[in-house]
Design a protein around this nucleic acid. Structure first.
Length: 366
DNA sequence: AATCCGGGGAC
DNA sequence: GTCCCAGGATT
């Protein structure tokens, strides 16, 4: 059964889901039942590709720090990124800030209340637009997230890859048909709760599931095979060699720009290479770039090594402290700061690993 | 249509 | 190690 399930099975799904929600669903989350579009928006952006347990603390901190859209819009970039530090997918934070400022300035702080307008905002795609418009404004749009792909592919026994164009179209159309247009928010919340609590990716609770007599995947023993994904993840390995320029109790940091990972986070001056290099080679490389004069290097600290595993990359980091006898004139994007100010900046986890070891520790502590 | 963008938890 | 998570933007 692929593409168009019989109508009675669809009816049974919606009815059974709402019944499960009313009777057995005891899942509680701070944004559940929330009607303030600002809070719903914040929660949905934080939860994009992020587990509820991981996002929960960030959500609470974010709402406490920025209680409404005006205060978010008025906040300096660094304060907002600091609130996002460690959560990943930093373009979410950048788009969040841009959208807050757009709404504050162009819409007098009023969050839009139509699906199309919400969808047009930066950082908001079909899922998030459906979530906000159904939860905050009771508009009939079905959410389609990882939970929905999993629940529908299993219940209806559909093996079309969910990460294919055909699969996305198929599941989106089906999701719209299944939605209860009279209570879209309740239905959307229910299907995601059901996917998270019962129809889980691993070890789903099939034996006690309300759909155990209807579910095609359960009937055919295909639960562990669904949903189907076509693409495999490939891991790329990279080597980042950082220098920590130290002069007169100050050190240099810079903001990451461009299209690479960790955009808008801060880092130390860094050279990327295709493979591991020595500290001597690193110093030589930055001298050739004229970031520092080789003669101004007093001491070159013992290198420290850390690694960070990302979803599609493995980052190897080498950290070398450079004690300088004069402050380099060159690089305009370097910011010279006191060590105490480090806590005001947001860094990738790799650099926070290094910072946790302390900067310029005495040699005998290494 | 493919690829990229993080970090953490479950297995 | 592998997979997945209340996805979206870019090319």
């Amino acid at each position: 059964m692929n593409s168009n399930p019989p109508s009675p099975l669809k009816k049974a799904f919606t009815k059974g889901l709402l019944k499960w929600n009313a009777g057995e669903n005891s899942r509680l989350m701070p944004w559940k039942g929330e009607k303030d579009p600002y809070r719903i928006w914040i929660s949905e952006i934080i939860l994009q590709q992020t587990r509820v347990e991981q996002g929960l603390g960030y959500y609470k901190r974010f709402i406490k720090t920025f209680p409404d859209i005006r205060q978010l819009a008025a906040a300096p970039d660094e304060k907002v990124f600091k609130c996002w530090e460690g959560l990943g997918y930093y373009s979410r934070c950048r788009n969040l800030l841009a959208t807050a400022r757009f709404i504050a300035r162009e819409r007098d702080g009023r969050f839009p209340d139509s699906y199309e307008t919400i969808l047009s905002l930066k950082g908001i795609g079909p899922y998030t637009a459906a979530a906000i418009s159904s939860f905050a404004f009771q508009l009939p749009h079905a959410v389609v997230d990882g939970n929905v792909y999993r629940v529908l592919s299993r219940y209806f026994g559909m093996d079309t890859p969910v990460d294919s164009t055909a699969g996305k179209k198929m599941f989106n159309r089906l999701a719209e048909e299944l939605l209860d247009p009279k209570q879209p928010g309740l239905y959307n919340q229910a299907i995601m709760d059901f996917g998270a609590v019962v129809c889980r990716p691993a070890a789903p609770l099939c034996d006690s599931c309300v759909f155990r007599k209807k579910c095609i995947a359960f009937r055919d023993g295909l639960v562990s095979k669904l949903p189907v994904k076509a693409k495999k993840t490939r891991i790329r390995e990279r080597w980042f060699s950082y220098t920590i320029p130290l002069y007169n109790n100050s050190l240099a940091v810079r903001r990451r720009t461009g299209k690479d990972i960790w955009q808008d986070l801060y880092e130390f001056p860094m050279i990327e290479t295709k493979k591991k290099i020595s500290p001597e080679k690193l110093v030589k490389a930055i001298a050739e770039k004229k970031w520092v004069d080789k003669k101004s290097v007093i001491t070159c600290g013992k290198p420290l090594f850390f690694r960070q595993q990302l979803s599609h990359q493995l980052i190897n980091g080498m950290f070398v402290e450079l004690h300088l006898q004069q402050r380099p004139a060159g690089e305009p994007d370097w910011q010279w700061i006191k060590k105490k100010q480090l806590e005001k900046f947001s860094f990738p986890g790799l650099i926070n690993q290094y910072l946790a070891q302390g900067i310029a520790l005495p040699r005998d502590r290494r």
